[in-house]
């Protein structure tokens, strides 16, 4: 796992995989039928992206693994997703805010990756972009509506934003692999995206009336595989079947 391309593919794939798993728990439970279906759609889109990135990682690694084995047979410290996506669902406000912050980062990241000198990275990103543009539009419009909605909806969205904020910085944490990828013009430095994403959030906040926290104290460590305890619970549920009955198929 020393090739920096694997680092990038895991970072992208694991973010999509974990968020997809988390969102899918809402299936049949969302507050309205429309949101239920929309969230499930987003989950499926992200699962598709995860599959492309993890397949790419497995190919570069060339040790006989594939997207499934990477998803189901790695432990927490081998995952490279950000700390934000592994935060618990809590309620619909938290889930939506988590999606909104993720989408804001994801869109900027894919826009840059689609210009990558690495053709495979560029192709996967361009494919994902079609769906992610819509994800961003959808979570953005919902956050604006609920932020600028009732006093109750505003407070819930603001509380969710405050609670998630310190984990958001996890997307912008640099590593040695990122420096190598940057030199090869494969991907941007993660930290360089922060001002761009923050500008987007600030623009939205004019309409949503939500206050973007000023703190830049970030929870760190995800790029080295240091995760919050919740990832363990997510993986236990997600990997249970394959770990108990290895290689079982539908």
């Amino acid at each position: 796992m020393s090739n920096p391309r694997i680092h990038l593919a895991l970072r992208m794939g694991d973010n999509s995989l974990i968020l997809s798993q988390q969102n899918s728990k809402w299936c049949g439970h969302a507050p309205t039928l429309e949101e239920d279906i929309a969230l499930a759609n987003v989950s499926l889109d992200l699962m598709g992206h995860a599959q492309m990135w993890l397949e790419f990682a497995a190919e570069v690694e060339d040790e006989g693994r594939n997207a499934d084995t990477l998803a189901f047979f790695r432990d927490t410290e081998e995952f490279r997703n950000s700390l934000l996506v592994e935060r618990p669902n809590v309620d619909f406000a938290t889930t939506l805010m988590r999606q909104y912050l993720f989408d804001a980062w994801h869109l900027e990241q894919l826009l840059l990756l689609s210009q990558s000198s690495d053709t495979l990275v560029a192709e996967i990103s361009q494919k994902a972009l079609v769906e992610v543009r819509y994800h961003r539009e959808r979570s953005q419009s919902l956050v604006i509506r609920l932020g600028d909605g009732t006093i109750d909806s505003h407070n819930r969205m603001q509380e969710a934003l405050n609670a998630l904020w310190s984990y958001f910085g996890s997307f912008f944490e640099d590593s040695k692999d990122d420096e190598m990828l940057f030199d090869l013009q494969t991907s941007p430095m993660p930290s360089s995206l922060y001002p761009r994403v923050l500008e987007q959030l600030n623009q939205d906040s004019v309409l949503s009336t939500l206050k973007i926290p000023e703190s830049e104290f970030w929870q760190k460590g995800a790029v080295q595989g240091h995760h919050t305890e919740n990832l363990g619970y997510i993986l236990a549920e997600m990997q249970y079947l394959q770990r108990t009955y290895p290689n079982s198929k539908w």
Binding site: E34, A38, S141, L142
Partner: peptide, 20 residues
């Protein structure tokens, strides 16, 4: 049919619910 606060949200929901 579906529920939405306004036209934009109705359009997004229609896309999600009826054109999957």
């Amino acid at each position: 049919s579906l529920h939405a606060t306004d036209a934009e949200m109705a359009m997004n929901n229609a896309r999600d619910v009826y054109t999957r």
